[in-house]
Design a protein around this nucleic acid. Structure first.
Lengths: 342, 342
DNA sequence: ATAAAAATCTAAACTTGTTTAGTTTTTATT
DNA sequence: AATAAAAACTAAACAAGTTTAGATTTTTAT
């Protein structure tokens, strides 16, 4: 029924040569191993004729290289991650690597078991990860020491590592600055938990520092934390509470795109017209559809294409350098831009 | 430097048993091979202690099963696909399978070379694909005959296959019907090319059939085709042309979400207020942010979660049935729903 | 105590490539 | 023509598991 796959040996038998020779030629090492041009052509032609495709597993088993890179993110349906994924995939494909994408659901146990599956026993040649880990402890285990890992979006401040991130502090600072210049004095920031991840702590810091610089006090009421697994309900509760406080808030700043969407939903539910109420709406992370959303959204746009490109190339570079035992960590911080829409 | 990985043999040596035995126990076949409970516990404990993880490649090479499923879509950054991907991944993970996602960019050459890489030599145990192929010819080649493939979103009418799709005809018909009931008489539909794919032809058919039923003529001017690689420019051209036609259009219906976004962009560019102009805006594919977009969008929402779930389970079912040579193709067509937002 | 039966375990083959260490063939040199 | 050097090629080991066929050991029955 199923057609038998062509093996190296089948080609070798047809041509009366050794499978060693066939392997060498197929891998483009014919010249360096001194295989005559004539024989090389014979092999290549026969391989094509028999539609030979190498068995990925046999090759990976022997060479220890799978040409697979894993991408671990909290949620591949988040446009921020799916767009990064697209650009990573593209950059990797150009170098003959394939990408394997998995979601961790912001669950560090799931993250660890995926890393264990992928990194140990060299299933993957490398890993690009938006980690949900609290600390770098897990990444310090012996078995991961020599494994190429590039952190994106978030890094772990307590360990040295390779990472590619946006300048979250700067972006958040600038956005806050813009709001203040537009006259906002009582901004409600919505943060998401787990909030220990670096991108969020830096956004919070940028927000607070900017308020401080402008002499605006920042109380506990100014930053509310929403849990990842119950966004919609908690945002509703937070907004309802904030909107009926005596000291009127004049801006809402959501610290990522999930929160922004949840906020918009609540506005709809409550039939709340932010623009009419003189409330500015701002968010970290830009989505293309934000251009058409009401109320208009002031946002911080991350250099998504560049993050993907840099991450892909960095992980490949580390893989190449693996033998040379170079141990210098690369930290790439990319600038964000404000999209003001006003 | 790098810590040596634990092998089956290491465990066997430590316990003075054969690696055969260790393999059996680790794979949960201890009982069926009559390994004593005591020995099983010893092995399991030692494996845990030594942090054993099997080499995926050696296992896959010997068993011919990788526990990997590939998902091929045109563009993983399209929210429709990334959301499906998320649900597929979830359903597969529950059964111990991992998902590998790749983009084809609507390029059938890229699609074929990925399929060749994945399907031949059993790199993947199965494939879920939103194909960009024009015909089923490629999928009829001998080497793919016994390979588990599930088509999603689009199927190929000229071959028998397993597929999970939304009822594109019905959804499009209902949407058109709604527009007509709202008084629209001259609807401009924007289609995307390559337009041969089944989801689009059926949406077009639903659109046309509904017009016909209502006695509304459908001319060439009513359906404009936009090419995937130049969406923004071509949509602009099409809209500019349509808007200055003598016979005023009273609705725009984009046949997928990419076109909807492009349209919105053009509205912005032209400073065109569709609602003020009495123009209804409708689209196949719903995105959550559509809830907040101006102009408001009438849309057809596909059962994304269900598509993902069904596709994942179908491919696993085919894999299970592979031995039993069952050859009945499953065709799952799921209902859509209209989101009217008016 | 001993044969038969049941329980427990293992040596070696096998999966399909890549690589090492070498052999055979051809060409060049004296 | 004999020898050295270069060119072209190959046998066998190897990667790390799984599986087959069979070997021990233990238990049961007489």
């Amino acid at each position: 029924m199923a057609i038998k796959k062509t093996l190296l040996e089948d080609i070798a038998n047809q041509l009366n040569v050794s499978k060693t020779l066939v392997s060498m030629v197929i891998n483009g090492k014919g010249d360096s191993y001194g295989i005559s041009k004539k024989t090389q052509k014979l092999v290549l032609d026969k391989a094509q004729e028999m539609e030979y495709t190498p068995n990925v597993f046999a090759r990976a088993l022997r060479t220890g290289k799978s040409h697979l890179i894993a991408l671990l993110v909290a949620d591949i349906s988040n446009p921020f991650y799916s767009n990064i994924a697209k650009h990573i995939e593209k950059a990797l494909a150009e170098k003959g690597y394939n990408l394997m994408i998995c979601s961790t659901d912001e669950d560090s146990h799931k993250e660890e078991s995926l890393i264990s599956l992928f990194a140990e026993q060299q299933f993957m040649d490398g890993l690009i990860i938006a980690t949900t880990a609290t600390s770098g402890k897990y990444f310090e285990k012996d078995k991961l020491q020599n494994f190429p890992i590039v952190f994106i979006d978030r890094y772990l401040p307590d360990i040295k590592s390779n990472y590619v991130v946006a300048n979250n502090y700067q972006g958040s600072y600038e956005l806050t600055d813009l709001l203040i210049h537009k006259g906002c004095k009582n901004i409600l920031a919505l943060n998401i938990s787990p909030s220990h991840i670096s991108s969020l702590t830096e956004r919070v810091k940028g927000f607070k520092d900017c308020l401080t610089k402008h002499g605006i006090p920042c109380t506990n009421d100014n930053i509310v934390e929403i849990s990842f697994n119950n966004i919609q309900n908690e945002v509703r509760k937070a907004l309802v509470k904030a909107l009926k406080q005596p000291k009127k808030i004049d801006a809402i700043y959501t610290l990522n795109n999930n929160l922004a969407t949840a906020c918009l939903n609540v506005f709809n539910e409550l039939n709340f017209d932010a623009e009419k109420e003189g409330l500015k709406f701002a968010s970290f992370d830009d989505i293309s559809l934000f251009d058409f959303v009401k109320p208009s959204i002031i946002s911080v746009s991350q250099p998504i294409e560049q993050i993907g490109f840099e991450a892909a190339n960095l992980v490949l570079k580390i893989i190449d350098n693996k033998n040379t035992e170079q141990n210098e960590f690369q930290n790439i911080v990319l600038p964000t831009s404000i999209i003001s829409r006003l």
